[in-house]
């Protein structure tokens, strides 16, 4: 299993694009929004939590179709499905690799972009915390979406249509957590709900993803 994780990480870094692309997209979004909205610090501070969270969501979405596409094309997915480790574990490892290559860089880059968007100083900790807690859910849900569309030729657009509605609860609680943190309100409920969604998604969705892969491989 660890070998699989290392292999996926290597592939993601070597294949180019996938690794840095999400991060670059996140950066571009954080630059484009002030250009579109205008430079008023108060406005930017008000929308920063939402913009950063939506940006993280879309950046995550960009690299989802790579999770299974290559393995599907060269047939290694069939091998993984018949391998001695359960398919649920394979799917979880895939999601973990996606999170390490996409989610974790976003978490680390978010404070820098928070500066660009004039995020209030109190909120930086909450921003990092919310992304740290929330992005694993994005990867796991995205893996499910990628598993659904793995056999389709033009799956990319369909994938976003399927996955984005599933991201709504994470987005709402994540952005809410940051804006409450910025306003100095109590953050416990939002944090617990966000963590709850992540825990639930990590616990249950790998089974759905594995079932879907088995159906697609039939």
């Amino acid at each position: 299993m660890i070998a699989l994780l290392i292999r996926d990480l290597r592939l993601a870094i070597r294949a180019g694009g996938g690794f840095g692309l999400g991060l670059a997209f996140f950066l571009i979004l954080a630059v484009l929004v002030p250009l579109g909205v205008g430079p008023q610090p108060a406005v930017l501070a008000a929308i920063a939590p939402g913009v950063l969270w939506v940006g993280a969501l879309l950046a995550c979405l960009l690299s989802l179709d790579r999770i299974f596409a290559l393995d599907w094309e060269d047939g290694s997915l069939d091998l993984l499905a018949t391998a001695p480790i359960p398919l649920e574990a394979v799917v979880t490892i895939k999601a973990l690799a996606h999170w390490i290559t996409t989610g974790l860089p976003l978490v680390l880059a978010a404070p820098v972009l928070g500066v660009l968007l004039n995020l209030s100083a109190d909120a930086f900790g909450w921003l990092v915390l919310s992304l740290l807690v929330g992005t694993p859910a994005l990867s796991v849900i995205g893996t499910f979406g990628a598993a659904l569309t793995v056999g389709l030729k033009r799956g990319g657009l369909l994938l976003s249509l399927l996955v984005l509605p599933l991201y709504i609860p994470t987005l709402v609680f994540g952005a809410e957590l940051v804006s409450r943190g910025a306003a100095g309100l109590t953050t416990q409920t939002a944090l617990l709900l966000l963590a709850g969604i992540t825990a639930g998604a990590v616990a249950i969705l790998p089974f759905a993803s594995a079932a879907v892969i088995r159906i697609n491989l039939r």
Binding site: F144, P165, L166, I168, P169, V172, A190, L193, A208
Partner: peptide, 17 residues
């Protein structure tokens, strides 16, 4: 099945938000 769970979560999230 998965969508139902997330639709309910979204509904709850919308009320919260």
């Amino acid at each position: 099945l998965v969508g139902t769970v997330f639709a309910l979560l979204s509904r709850y999230a919308a009320f919260f938000w």
